[in-house]
Design a protein around this nucleic acid. Structure first.
Lengths: 229, 229
DNA sequence: ATCATTAGTGTAGTTACAACACGAAGGGAG
DNA sequence: CTCCCTTCGTGTTGTAACTACACTAATGAT
């Protein structure tokens, strides 16, 4: 079945920059393309938007199809519409970025992808299309956003030690933070709940675990509270 | 001539939220639609993206065609792709916001528009499509952005008094600012040049005029300087 | 028992911020 | 010319927030 229009139309796609965090680095999820163009190259997961789904839905669907990830934090980033982004024809892509807990999710390649894999953000392969530009913008946005909104929790397990949280900020902001000042500040925000649990399986003194309290956070947000780190 | 595709495609448009500032209010430029759907309703200027122009180019072209505005500050806002935005068919729109000096630009209606007019931001008519939502997001973005980036100068004439600048911040942030503190802060940023001129045609003591120094601003930006108000 | 590693805590100096009032300049009205 | 009205332009002080910084306690590994 074919579809006719009076004027030519651009193809519309979504692409996702998926960030994850492990004990060392900030990582990004890429897929190896199994189809031309750029067959064999690494690229951001993504694909065509269908007419019966919103842009957000399309992003979630493609992410699930190509990497198996579901229920992640997802936010629109920017729309890229340069004329020569895709060698085949005019393609406009709505880019998203996602934050996932690496521990939670097992990643698997699927549709249109030979494999999916995590790459450290400062050790990336060459990417297909203009995906390097998209990824750079996503990284910048994450750095900017994490400073005044506590979205970083999306990258941590539900229960975490303050050291892990500090490490997250240090990795994303790419600068060291003072332990005592960091603790003071983050605890003063009153968005963490101290749990009656400590870390296990660590070869040293175990740290107290905390969880992020979304309810408190939302209440404070409404009061115009400032979460700057 | 008609165009055929294997899969159905959404139509792609751009819409612009144009902000202007006069002596009282923050204003928005709207056009009265001359065609269905929503004929006779006020709407954001915008239209279809052609295949031989980037999204930014499309936004500038539509803005010029429908309102006569050229060479304005323009920045992508967000892309809206809900299923029922347009009663005719699936239309995805890339929204932009623009800042213009009201004094500089004479506005005139043109293509597809009966007329173009400025509306105070808190005295708006009902709008076509989901344009109220787009406008609300643009307003929020402007408020957020003006606090840490000196984009507000785009709304002022090239030479301005500090009172005008303060008034701009007060209107956008919707709260009064202390005159002395404001002056101290903005002058300490070292992005303004004091001119050897004063206001004319005012019925009271004339204020010293300043201009924004883009070069200084860019130099400081590279040094990671903070422009928070 | 000792060692290695990380947890957890307080203070003092410095800087940034908010609050606040008045004399001087200049145009307009009489 | 004088008076009046409006806006310009300027400093200080108390308070809150930020930075820099070092040691003891806990725990697992050897």
């Amino acid at each position: 079945m074919s579809h006719e229009y009076e004027f030519p139309r651009a193809a519309l796609t979504v692409d996702c920059v998926v960030f994850g965090l492990d004990d060392e680095d900030l990582k990004v999820l890429l897929i190896e393309r199994d189809l031309p163009p750029f067959e064999g190259r690494w690229a951001l997961p993504g694909g065509f938007v269908r007419l019966d789904e919103t842009l957000d839905d399309a992003a979630r669907r493609e992410l699930c199809e190509e990497t198996g990830l579901e229920r992640v934090y997802l936010e629109q980033l920017y729309t890229f519409g340069d004329l020569d982004r895709d060698p085949r024809e005019r393609v406009v892509t709505v880019a998203y970025y996602a934050l996932v807990r690496l521990s939670d999710h097992r990643v698997q390649a699927a549709t249109d992808a030979r494999q999916a894999a995590w790459f450290a953000i400062d050790d990336l392969p060459r990417l297909a299309f203009d995906h390097e530009r998209i990824l750079a913008m996503a990284h910048e946005r994450l750095r900017g956003k994490v400073r005044y909104q506590p979205i970083g929790f999306e990258l941590l397990p539900p229960k975490f030690a303050l050291r892990q949280l500090q490490h997250l900020y240090e990795v994303i902001l790419d600068r060291p933070l003072d332990k005592r000042n960091f603790r003071k500040k983050i605890l003063a925000m009153d968005i963490l709940v101290e749990l009656d649990e400590v870390e296990t399986d660590v070869a040293h003194r175990a740290a107290r675990l905390y969880r992020f309290d979304k309810t408190k956070y939302r209440r404070l947000t409404k009061q115009g509270f400032n979460f700057e780190i």
